[in-house]
């Protein structure tokens, strides 16, 4: 609920007409190439980036009241746009996003975009030449991006929608939501929760305390790693997947196709339970130690499911 509220609040911010205040207005445009390399740096505020109908880089809105101006350079396939601050503001606190820039930027759809900010909420959509988006405290909404897609925040939430290609999503504390991704995707958080519906063929998920709930379709290679957080994965339409999982005390629940062909190798080293709803095989227990171990095969055994835990519970169930 909290997440929904904050997302709506962000959306509201982005939709509101720019308020007239002490912030300086900006309205600039440059003709650029269809596959322009574009670099944007905005330390704080809100930024929305959309594909333009023509080969133009356009920026409108207001700039940070503490800024001393901006730099827009466009030459030889490169365009860079930065909000400039007095040197005395180095090392300053950028957390007052309300005083920051409010910008609407258009770039050619085929651009390759690099965006960096600190306390900035960024909403970017429809760029197919590659996107590298990073912010420290702000939220990221990224949709319909293609090619190489890097989304990184430290504290912010990341909402990824219908992105494709080679996607990297990482936060420390923020929550990650991904829907409709295809290609190859890596999710990484320390505390943040991960909720994903993905059809990516390769998926890797790494969390420390965060909980992860994934609904995957057709994924061929899946890597799962958690320390304390619980991971719940449903993997549909995958009959010979290669799955590697590791947990310390987090629980792992893996829902797999009933017709899966795979060799299963699951071990709980100290206290964890293994529940197998796939076959009649039951875990064996070490005579001289606490380890439980389950080893069996289904079908031709073409795929592999290797999971290890220290004290978490592992459950494999047919979908």
């Amino acid at each position: 609920m909290k997440a929904i509220l904050s997302k709506n609040a962000l959306l509201l911010c982005l939709l509101l007409p720019f308020a007239a205040n002490a912030q300086e207005p900006i309205d600039e445009s440059r003709s650029v190439s269809a596959n322009e390399r574009i670099s944007i740096e905005v330390m704080r505020g809100t930024v929305r980036i959309r594909p333009s109908d023509d080969n133009v880089f356009r920026v409108r809105g207001t700039i940070d009241e503490d800024a001393e101006g901006y730099t827009l350079e466009s030459d030889n396939g490169f365009t860079s746009f930065e909000i400039d601050y007095p040197r005395s503001s180095r090392g300053r606190n950028w957390s007052d996003a309300d005083d920051g820039s409010e910008l609407e930027i258009e770039v050619p759809q085929g651009s390759e975009l690099e965006f960096e900010g600190v306390s900035v909420d960024i909403d970017v959509m429809g760029i197919t030449g590659g996107s590298d988006i990073s912010t420290v405290n702000g939220d990221i909404i990224a949709s319909e991006l293609g090619n190489f897609v890097n989304l990184s925040a430290v504290n912010g939430e990341i909402d990824s929608r219908n992105n494709s290609g080679r996607i990297d999503i990482s936060t420390i504390n923020g929550e990650v939501t991904d829907n409709g991704s295809t290609g190859r995707i890596d999710y990484s958080t320390i505390n943040g929760e991960i909720r994903a519906n993905s059809s990516a063929t390769e998926v890797s998920i790494s969390t420390v305390n965060g909980e992860a709930v994934l609904s995957l379709a057709g994924t061929e290679v899946l890597e799962l790693s958690t320390v304390n957080g619980d991971i719940d994965v449903r993997l549909a339409d995958a009959l010979t997947p290669r799955i590697d999982g590791s947990t310390v005390s987090g629980d792992l629940r893996l829902g797999l196709e009933p017709g899966i062909s795979a060799s299963f190798d699951i071990s709980a080293n100290s206290g964890g339970d293994i529940e197998n709803d796939f076959s009649d095989d039951r875990p064996s227990r070490d005579r001289y130690g606490p380890r439980k171990h389950l080893n069996f095969s289904t079908g031709t055994g073409a795929g592999s499911v290797n999971i290890t835990t220290v004290s978490g519970d592992i459950e494999i169930v047919p979908l």
């Binding site: 320390i190 310390v248 080293n269 100290s270 606490p290 380890r291 220290v310």
Partner: peptide, 20 residues
């Protein structure tokens, strides 16, 4: 707090390593 979580996990893995 975050580092303490890792410390706890390290202890758990070391506990298992004491057997294996």
């Amino acid at each position: 707090r975050q580092l303490a979580i890792w410390d706890g996990a390290v202890q758990q893995v070391r506990g298992a390593l004491s057997y294996y």
